[in-house]
C-alpha cells in the first residue's frame, strides 16, 4: 500500500514542471501569442533560482527569483514580438536558444554545488498517517502551488471578465480592438505571466525536484509543454492529465532502467515523450473541439489600425 502512495507522489512530482510551464503557455497562447521560448525561460528560471538559493540559503527566495527571471526573459520576447511586430516563431526559437546558452554560462560555477532544497511536506500525524494522509499531505509544497495555479488558470479563463477578454483577443484581436479592448497590453500581461510560470517550472526542477543544477537540466520539457498544449486542445484539465501521464511514464522508465531491463536506456528515456504525444494525439482528434478551443489568431502579429 505504501509503495502505491509513493508512486502517486513521485508521478505528480515528475509531472509538475510541465504543469507550471504548460499552464503558463496556455494563457499566452489563449491570448493569441505563440512564445516558443519556454525551454529557454525554464532553464533561466532554474539557474536563477538555484543561484539565489545557493547564495541566500532560502529556496523560496530562489523560487521567486526563478519566476522573475522567466518573466524578464519573456519581456524581451514581448518587446520584440508584440511591440516591434517581429515574427513570433523566429523570436521564440531565438529566445529558447538564448535561454539555454545564458543559463549554461551563468551557472558554470554552480554545477556541483549542493543546496538545501524545498522538501516534501511532513506534518506530524497527517503526512505519515495512513495512505490517505500521505496522498493528501505528503507532496512537495510546490506541487500544491502548481495545483493552485491550475485552479486559478481555469477560474480566470472561464469565470472572470478579463479571462473572457483574453480568449476574445486570442480569437480575433481586430474585433477585440474594434470593440475597445486593449489587445497589446493584455498580450504583454499574458506573455509575462507565461514567462513567470515557465520560470517557476524551472525553479521547481532546480530547488525542489532534483535539487541541483546541470546544464540543460529541463531536458526538453519546455518543448513537451508546447506540444502538450496543442494535443490537450488548450484545455487546462487535459494539460494536467498530459503532464501527469508524462510524469508516470518518466517514473516507469526509471524503474525499468533500475531493474536492468534489456532495452537501451536511450530508448527508455524517449518513452515519456512518445507516450504523452501519442496518447494526447489520439484523444484530441475531434476537429470541432480543436476549432472551439484553439486560439484562432495564434502566432499572428497584431497592429492596431
Amino acid at each position: 500500500m505504501d509503495t502505491c502512495a509513493q508512486l502517486v507522489i513521485l508521478t505528480l512530482a515528475a509531472g509538475t514542471p510541465l504543469v507550471f510551464a504548460a499552464l503558463g503557455e496556455l494563457v499566452v497562447e489563449k491570448a493569441g501569442v505563440l512564445n516558443l521560448g519556454v525551454e529557454g525561460m525554464m532553464l533561466t528560471g532554474a539557474v536563477a533560482s538555484f543561484i539565489v538559493t545557493a547564495d541566500t540559503h532560502s529556496p523560496w527566495l530562489g523560487v521567486g527569483a526563478g519566476a522573475l527571471a522567466g518573466a524578464a526573459l519573456s519581456l524581451v520576447f514581448a518587446v520584440i514580438a508584440l511591440t516591434l511586430l517581429a515574427n513570433q516563431v523566429a523570436t521564440g526559437l531565438a529566445l529558447s536558444l538564448f535561454g539555454v546558452g545564458l543559463s549554461a554560462f551563468v551557472g558554470r560555477g554552480y554545477i556541483s554545488v549542493v543546496i538545501e532544497g524545498i522538501k516534501p511536506l511532513s506534518i506530524p500525524g497527517l503526512s505519515d498517517a495512513a495512505i490517505v494522509g500521505r496522498l493528501l499531505f505528503g507532496h512537495n509544497p510546490m506541487v500544491y502551488l502548481s495545483l493552485a495555479l491550475f485552479v486559478a488558470v481555469q477560474w480566470f479563463l472561464h469565470r472572470t471578465r478579463t479571462g473572457l477578454v483574453l480568449r476574445a483577443v486570442g480569437e480575433s484581436p481586430a474585433s477585440a480592438h474594434a470593440i475597445g479592448h486593449r489587445v497589446i497590453a493584455l498580450r504583454y500581461a499574458a506573455v509575462l505571466f507565461g514567462g513567470a510560470c515557465a520560470g517557476l517550472g524551472g525553479a521547481y526542477m532546480a530547488v525542489a525536484y532534483t535539487p541541483s543544477w546541470a546544464e540543460g537540466m529541463t531536458a526538453g520539457r519546455g518543448w513537451i509543454a508546447l506540444a502538450l498544449l496543442v494535443f490537450a486542445t488548450w484545455k487546462p484539465w487535459r494539460v494536467l492529465a498530459g503532464a501527469y501521464l508524462f510524469g508516470g511514464v518518466t517514473l516507469a522508465q526509471f524503474q525499468a532502467q533500475a531493474a536492468g531491463v534489456a532495452i537501451p536506456s536511450q530508448l527508455l528515456a524517449m518513452l515519456p515523450y512518445v507516450a504523452t504525444i501519442v496518447v494526447l494525439a489520439i484523444i484530441s482528434r475531434d476537429a470541432t473541439t480543436i476549432r472551439l478551443n484553439a486560439p484562432a489568431s495564434l502566432g499572428r502579429p497584431f497592429h492596431p489600425e
Binding site: 473572457l164 477578454v165 480568449r167 476574445a168 480569437e171 474585433s175 477585440a176 479592448h181 476549432r291 472551439l292
Partner: peptide, 14 residues
C-alpha cells in the same frame, strides 16, 4: 466583430 467560439451572452458582455 463577433467571436465564433464564444456564446451570444459572452459576445455581448465583451
Amino acid at each position: 466583430s463577433l467571436f465564433e467560439t464564444l456564446t451570444v451572452a459572452e459576445n455581448i458582455a465583451l
